[in-house]
Structures are given as structure tokens and as C-alpha cells.
Write a protein that binds this DNA or RNA. Structure first.
Lengths: 142, 142
DNA sequence: TTCGGAATAGGAATGGTTACTGATCGGAGA
DNA sequence: TCTCCGATCAGTAACCATTCCTATTCCGAA
């Protein structure tokens, strides 16, 4: 993890009052290592490789803390457990309905949409998630 | 249900090969009656009022058939069961993170976004769902 | 070093959803 | 109209992601 990122994360922990424990750090490392959009179970398995004593519940709790302080992001799909993501910049992901792989869709401007949403609802908008499903190139052929 | 809608639904059933049974019709009526974004459980309770023998599983199966043939739409939220919707026109919903109420956000143009998505991914896009969460006006004050 | 609150491991419980099975329905053809 | 067969259904058990619970451990402030 780059030191800039690490400093930022430390700062977010400090401000939130949560403590940056070794388990939470391990979850962050696992998210980085997974490089994709791992489920809590995926993260758990990676963390377990280095520390076999971690509990799945701890991973869930860590992920929820990390999400709360704005370090990770989660997405809910149909027919798939929740997937987590270190990248907090708003971005688009697409999931293959057949094989389940998740990829990022680059180059789509989202700011205008968010603006329009805020303008058109009396709600205080907290979170906008765009979930795209389709068939990936290889499943498309098959 | 307007006769135009009903004709359209009948046609979609005919083309799909599924049969429009009384239970599936009841689920459609319930979706219309619920006027909002009911969960499968909500739909089940409404259907049960008129036919106490329906099984929850039947409601789930009906909803999945209806979704498959394009008559209903579903959305997956965090901290909430899947919610279903008769309105198949692409539209935006926002859910209050505190009280759970779901409302529609009118007046946001989505076609351009969909076009951009299709243009920027090699996937065959099947479905784009936008999930917005926030605080509704009353929860905002409290 | 001590203390108290936060965090954790381990496992049980929950809740939404799906799967299974035998009974029932409904529509195509006689 | 009657028969038959595959689709659908009711009822219930199973599943699985996630949360909850409790005793133990950790960590940081004093």
C-alpha cells in the first residue's frame, strides 16, 4: 500500500474513532491483493492464509467499518454475494451474468448524473450505485 | 390493470411459453396494489389475503418468471430484501437509509448513460440498475 | 502497569431465497 | 367433452450470506 494511501487511511481511522487493528489492516491488504471485486468470503480466505485464526465475522465487521469511514465500497448484485472494492472513486462495474466475473467500465462520466439526481429529489443523497449486468466477451460467444 | 397493459402481458406470456396462471395474475395484481416497491414478502401477504393457500415459493417463482419475460423489474439494496416493481420503463428509485421507504426520482435522463455504457464495454449489456440511497425529508429532520 | 472499552474468535442464529416432492392444474389433441 | 402430459403449485426442508452473541483478548490512555 502506498504511503500516501496509508496515511489517508490512518487519518480516516483517527477521525472516526475506530482503531486500525492488524485484522483490519489484513483485510485492506487482501482487498488490494484480490484486485477485482472480491466477496467477503474471498477476502476471508486470503486473510486466513496469513492468519488462520481470523473469523469470518471479523472480516464482515472490518469491511463494514472500512465502508463506513469511506475506505472501501460495496456493491449488491443479483445472484451474487456483496462484493467489495478498495477504489472509492465513483466508477462503473459490470458483472457477467453467466460466469460472474466483474470488470470495470472506464470512460463513463458520472458527475452529471449525480448532479441531476440531487437536483431532482428532496432526499439527502448519500450513495449512488450503478449495477450493470451482461455477458462478457467469452460467455457471449459460447 | 388497463386492457392495453393486460394485452401486452398476455402477449409476453404467449411468446415466452410460460402460462399466465391465476397465481401469476394475482402477483401482478398485488404489485399493482402495492404501488411502491414491495418485497416478495409484501407481495406474498397481499396475494394471501385473497388466496390463503398460495405458497411463498410460488410468489418467488412468479416474480422470477415475470422478471424474465420483462414485465417486472427487481432491485437489490443493501440492508433490504429485493424489491419488485411493475414499471419497466427505466427509472430511478431512492431508498431512505433510515426508514426504508422507496420513492421514485423523476426527470433524470438515463438514455445517454446507457449509451455510454454500451459504447465503453465489450460486454453485451443486459441490465443497468441504479440504486440510490439517502435520507428522506422526514428522516432528515429527525 | 493497570484498567476499561473496543475488537476478536468461534459458533449459533437469522432471514431471504431456493430446492425438492408429491399433488394439482390446464390446455392440446382426440 | 374427455384424456393425458407437462407445467405449475403448496408445503416444507435446505441453503447460504450475513448478523448476532459471548467469553476472551487486545490496545491505548492514564
Amino acid at each position: 500500500m502506498s504511503s500516501v494511501l496509508e496515511r489517508d487511511i490512518r487519518e480516516k481511522f483517527r477521525r472516526s474513532g475506530y482503531t486500525l487493528t492488524s485484522q483490519r489492516r489484513a483485510v485492506l491488504e487482501a482487498l488490494k491483493e484480490a484486485r477485482g471485486h472480491p466477496s467477503a468470503e474471498d477476502v476471508y480466505l486470503i486473510v486466513k492464509r496469513k492468519n488462520p485464526r481470523v473469523a469470518l465475522g471479523t472480516v464482515y465487521q472490518a469491511l463494514s467499518v472500512l465502508e463506513e469511514i469511506g475506505v472501501v465500497d460495496s456493491k449488491h448484485w443479483s445472484e451474487s454475494p456483496t462484493r467489495y472494492d478498495l477504489n472509492v472513486e465513483p466508477h462503473l462495474d459490470i458483472r457477467c451474468a453467466r460466469c460472474g466475473v466483474v470488470s470495470e467500465i472506464p470512460g463513463v462520466e458520472l458527475e452529471e448524473l449525480e448532479e441531476n439526481i440531487r437536483y431532482n429529489t428532496p432526499y439527502e443523497v448519500k450513495r449512488t450505485t450503478i449495477v450493470v449486468e451482461g455477458l462478457c466477451p467469452s460467455c457471449r460467444e459460447a
